[in-house]
Simulated assay, not measured.
Amino acid sequence: MITVTAASGHLGRLVLTDLLDRGLPAEQIAAVARTPEKVAAFTARGVQVRQADYARPDTLGVALAGATKLLFISGSEVGQRRAQHRNVIEAAQAAGVGMIAYTSILKADTSSVPLAEEHLATEHMIRESGLPFVFLRNGWYLENYTEAGLPQALATGSVIGSAGTGRVAAATRADFAAAAVAVLTAAGPVSPAGTVYELGGDQPFTLAELAAEISRQVGREITYQDLPADVYAKALTDAGVPEPMAAALAASDVGIARGDLTTDSGDLSRLIGRPTTSLADAVRTAIVG
């Protein structure tokens, strides 16, 4: 039984779809969601949908029962993830889960990005649990730029950020989902217990290069405006981003400037057996819609 948590999120949905498209029998897949109604389409395809909430330990035991491989997708509530993730890990221990694949963050053990703190704490808890594990240290999503940033750039003529000339090895959610599926479905020693993957796009880029690519594809000049982190955070809150997340995103851009969100490991393309999605392709898809 392959069990996927946070199944109603973007990444979870992609993983479930990929598992089914690869021919894995639906009865061998369990989808764990806080709101099962949001994944009703997978129920219709025969997937076992189970309700659970990371913040409610009493819901997790039944949800993880029978899991031989667990894709533990990190929670979204920044600041609450240590306690919530401990609940999941303890439930996995009690359920006798065979292996945990945890979606962490790139360079979790050395990163200065504030978001890395809870991920690294979770990695430590998983190691201490004694359960076999694989850490999928995911880099930034290309969708962070093509979904959230592109409309703003087209409206104002500028990509804004605080990353300086730092490079980001971003890849699409579909790329990261394919890597998770490769680990979950590996029949041989592709991902032996204890493997740590540093996952990022094949061609890291600067935000100035992002602006140049948008310019090329829309036929008008889009510039990159590099801002102090506090000014960038305020611009995000003015655009409707909650203040804690705005501060985290601005700090992450500072991390990009330091090299925290880039990698030349090649782990992602090796896992998925193809090149990662290029910046040009991601921008083109977002523009075409």
Rank of each mutant, 00 (worst) to 15 (best):
V62A: 15
P36G: 10
A44W: 01
D53Y: 01
A94L: 08
P57C: 00
E117M: 05
S129G: 03
V39N: 04
N144M: 10
G61S: 13
A101H: 11
V39A: 05
F42M: 07
A44K: 15
T103P: 06
E143T: 01
A108S: 14
R82Q: 15
R56M: 07
H124I: 12
G98Q: 15
A63T: 07
Y145F: 15
R56A: 14
Y141Q: 00
P36R: 01
V88I: 14
A30R: 11
L64V: 04
R34F: 01
V134P: 11
A30G: 13
G66I: 10
V113P: 06
E37Q: 14
P25A: 13
A30Y: 01
A92F: 02
A94P: 00
E143K: 01
V47C: 02
T43H: 13
F135Y: 14
Q93Y: 00
I100L: 06
A55K: 08
E90H: 07
Q28L: 14
G79S: 06
A101C: 15
G98V: 11
F72Y: 14
V62T: 15
I105A: 09
L115Y: 03
M125S: 09
E77G: 04
A30D: 12
A52P: 05
V49N: 05
G96E: 09
I73N: 02
Y54T: 02
I29Y: 12
L106S: 06
